[in-house]
Design a protein around this nucleic acid. Structure first.
Lengths: 132, 132
DNA sequence: ATTGCACACGTTATAGCATAACGCAATTGA
DNA sequence: TCAATTGCGTTATGCTATAACGTGTGCAAT
């Protein structure tokens, strides 16, 4: 799937996420876009919904936040399961893919006859800088 | 770490979770305990906090819910990373542990000099029954 | 015994996250 | 032209979680 042209709101939300140092909550995004005419949470959530669908943004379930995909230009949906390491001190996020992990998890669910739709792997802790 | 004697509120919350078919939100638990004198969310959240600490309850980050540990009597903290398969139709949760997955994830974070504190693995989809 | 501490608990209020439901405007394609 | 789709704006509401305050109880140290 290729990413279609973004609408105005989608672009605004995506730009905010791309320029951010780390993940942002929907309400933080809203605040950053008030000068651009945003007034209500739904304007943000609707844009995010599409950006998630296009694979250019990830939702971090464990911290109710959103982050731009670390692979500009590519579509993360094609990389298999994405895992995140989230620094609880500075908020920095690292993203990675491991096919062996994917394989083990998918082998297990297949054994359970479970049909996976969406998988979340999030590791919270301290990054090198903050742990020092 | 061994599980200490539960207080009254902790026991009530734990019993509700154990008897439930699937994961429950804090507010659902609250509603089920109104007859036992529960009036406010904090009564539930405080009990959950302890039960999570004791390792007898898990929080499912992706659905903001809580579930009793599938290993009665044991302490899940000793099993390494716990992964969950959550049916989005019937709510049923399967829990499992895979040391190889642990190992791959921990090897990666170690390479990044990231210090992990808490890891979430949640697979949402359809269980065998609901997928049929 | 009294003091000090830790812990569980109760209550009110508030903060933070997410969506329902309505209507309007622009676009597209039959 | 008409219908269907999509994005957008607004108001209202619901769900999730915690802050801040005070109370009571048990227990250990002096």
């Amino acid at each position: 799937m290729t990413t279609p042209q973004l609408t105005k709101n989608q672009s605004l939300v995506f730009d905010v996420l791309e320029k951010a140092e780390g993940p942002l909550s929907a309400y933080t995004i809203l605040d950053k876009l008030r000068d651009h005419g945003f007034r209500a949470p739904l304007q943000v959530y609707r844009a995010l919904e599409k950006l998630l669908e296009y694979g250019v943004v990830h939702r971090l379930e464990s911290i109710n936040s959103f982050v731009a995909c670390a692979h500009p230009g590519e579509n993360c949906h094609s990389h298999g399961i994405v895992a995140f390491a989230i620094c609880e001190s500075c908020g920095q996020v690292m993203e990675f893919h491991d096919h062996e992990v994917d394989h083990r998890l998918m082998a297990w669910v297949r054994g359970q006859k479970f049909k996976p739709e969406k998988t979340t792997i999030e590791i919270r802790g301290l990054c090198e800088t903050c742990a020092a």
